[in-house]
Amino acid sequence: MRTIVINSQKGGSGKTTLCAHLAVEAERAGDGPVFLIDTDPQGTLSTWHEHRAAELPQRAEVPLANLAQGIEALRARKATYCFIDTAPTRTDENADVFRLADLVLVPIRPSPSDLWAAAATVGLLKQANIPFLFVLTQAKSNASITAQAAAALSHHGPIAETFISDRVHYAAAMTDGRTALELAPKGPAAIETATLWKHIKACLHANMEKTSTAGKKRHG
Rank of each mutant, 00 (worst) to 15 (best):
C19A: 14
E27D: 14
S141H: 05
P63K: 02
N7Y: 07
P88E: 02
A194L: 01
K126A: 12
A53V: 15
S113T: 11
P88T: 07
A119Y: 14
H51T: 15
T17G: 12
A147C: 04
A150E: 11
C82Q: 03
P33M: 07
V5Q: 02
S141D: 10
A152G: 04
T213V: 13
A172C: 02
D114E: 10
L115W: 11
G215I: 01
V24L: 09
T89N: 14
H205P: 00
L100N: 07
Q58R: 13
E192N: 00
F35T: 07
S154H: 07
A184Q: 12
R90L: 14
G187I: 05
K140P: 03
A26W: 11
G14C: 07
A152D: 06
L115N: 07
H51G: 15
F98W: 06
W48P: 10
H169T: 15
T121G: 08
N66R: 14
N94W: 07
T195K: 03
N207Q: 09
A79Q: 00
H205C: 02
E61S: 08
L103C: 01
A139N: 06
A173Q: 08
E182M: 14
I4D: 01
K186G: 11
F98Q: 05
K217E: 13
K10D: 06
H156Q: 11
L45N: 09
T44I: 10
R28W: 14
P88A: 05
I71L: 11
S113L: 15
I164R: 04
L181M: 10
A120T: 15
T91E: 12
D102G: 02
H155D: 15
N7V: 08
G14L: 08
P63Y: 04
P41S: 09
I108K: 03
G215Y: 00
N94R: 01
E27M: 11
S154D: 09
A128C: 05
A128G: 08
A171C: 08
P33N: 10
K186H: 12
V122D: 08
D40G: 12
K140V: 05
R90P: 00
F134M: 13
H169V: 14
P110M: 09
N207K: 02
I84Q: 03
I108L: 13
K186N: 13
H21G: 07
L183F: 11
R75A: 08
N207G: 07
A29Y: 03
A190G: 03
T179V: 09
I130Y: 06
F98E: 09
D40L: 07
L36H: 13
G187N: 06
P188Y: 00
T195E: 05
E61L: 07
Q69V: 13
V62A: 06
L74C: 05
V168K: 10
A214K: 13
Q58S: 09
A73P: 00
H156I: 09
H49D: 09
T193H: 02
K201V: 09
S165A: 11
I200N: 05
D102H: 04
G14M: 08
A147V: 12
F163D: 04
